[in-house]
């Protein structure tokens, strides 16, 4: 196909080396400019200072990263289960969809920062992690629900008739036609939700505030209050890495599941 020459080793190497080189150039300029203009670390720390802060606070930052990651993963998994289950219910009962969908939208469009204090009060400050989980779940849930609903509904009408012709049961239609058809949609929703679950966890931690929260977001607030800007950057870096890690993991899963049959994930090399 047209991308036949996109797969030469040189092209593939360029795909990795180009951004890497740009990143290194950016970091070097950053380091140089900070030294050249003698910028104070509490305004903008040099990359080397951030690296040092990362090493110095490694243990506590890792504990925090794990706390944030745990909330993110749990919220994501619950959003996946809840979103798919509710979408399946919606396609089985039009009545249920009509009744419930508006509330799912309300939940989605209300800013999570605005509900966070309420949820915290309801759940109680002694169970902050549960509150964080609920908040991250609220943010992560909707993309899965709406994508899955779309995927379950957009089956080929001829295939539906074929299933009807052979007297397929509702269960067979669901498991052999609708769910496989929805798989690419669910995976796309998961990629959005994975990132959102992390954002939800971080925002909830910010709101939960002092003492109670132990995640990376709280490390950022804490370091900011103490003007430990390099440590703040170090926590920020870890958060970005978590987000990137989640995205790549889900992209890999998508590739694994769809590469044989779906246009979005066909191996470039197999063309």
């Amino acid at each position: 196909m047209a991308d036949a020459n996109q797969n030469t080793p040189a092209q593939r190497a360029a795909k990795i080396l180009l951004p890497l080189a740009l990143g290194l150039f950016f970091l070097a300029s950053w380091e140089g400019l900070v030294a050249l203009y003698d910028i104070k670390p509490f305004v903008l720390p040099a990359p080397s200072a951030i690296g040092a802060a990362l090493v110095e606070n490694w243990a506590s930052l890792m504990v925090s990263a794990w706390a944030t990651l745990r909330v993110t993963i749990l919220a994501f998994v619950l959003a996946l289960i809840g979103g798919v289950a509710l979408a399946v219910l919606f396609t089985q009962s039009r009545l249920l969809e009509l009744a419930l969908f508006p509330y799912a939208v309300v939940l989605q469009v209300t800013p999570v920062v605005a509900i966070a204090p309420l949820i915290l009060i309801w759940v109680g400050f002694d169970r902050v992690e549960t509150a964080l989980l609920i908040l991250a779940w609220i943010v992560a849930f909707f993309p899965i629900l709406s994508n899955t609903t779309l995927g379950l509904k957009s089956t080929d009408p001829n295939l539906r008739e074929l299933f009807q012709l052979y007297g397929a049961s509702r269960w067979q239609v669901l498991t052999r036609l609708q769910l496989p058809n929805a798989t690419p949609y669910i995976l796309a929703g998961m990629k959005i939700s994975g990132g959102l679950a992390l954002i939800g966890a971080v925002v909830a931690e910010f709101v939960a505030g002092s003492g109670a929260a132990t995640g990376l977001a709280w490390r950022i607030v804490e370091a900011g209050n103490r003007l430990q800007i390099p440590k703040m950057f170090a926590a920020l870096l870890l958060l970005s890495l978590l987000g990137v890690g989640i995205f790549f993991l889900l992209s890999w899963l998508e590739h694994l599941l769809l590469r044989r049959w779906h246009e979005s994930a066909i191996d470039q090399n197999a063309r």
């Binding site: 080929d156 001829n158 295939l159 008739e161 074929l162 299933f163 012709l165 052979y166 007297g167 397929a168 067979q172 052999r176 036609l177 496989p180 058809n181 798989t183 049959w261 779906h262």
Partner: peptide, 28 residues
């Protein structure tokens, strides 16, 4: 069971292999 239907398009399930597609009526 006694009717076979062929549509204008092949109407195969893109996520299933050829043998799964062909055996669909019997699996159902």
């Amino acid at each position: 069971d006694s009717i076979g239907f062929v549509f204008q398009e092949p109407t195969l399930m893109p996520w299933a292999t050829l043998q799964r597609n062909v055996s669909l009526p019997l699996e159902l």
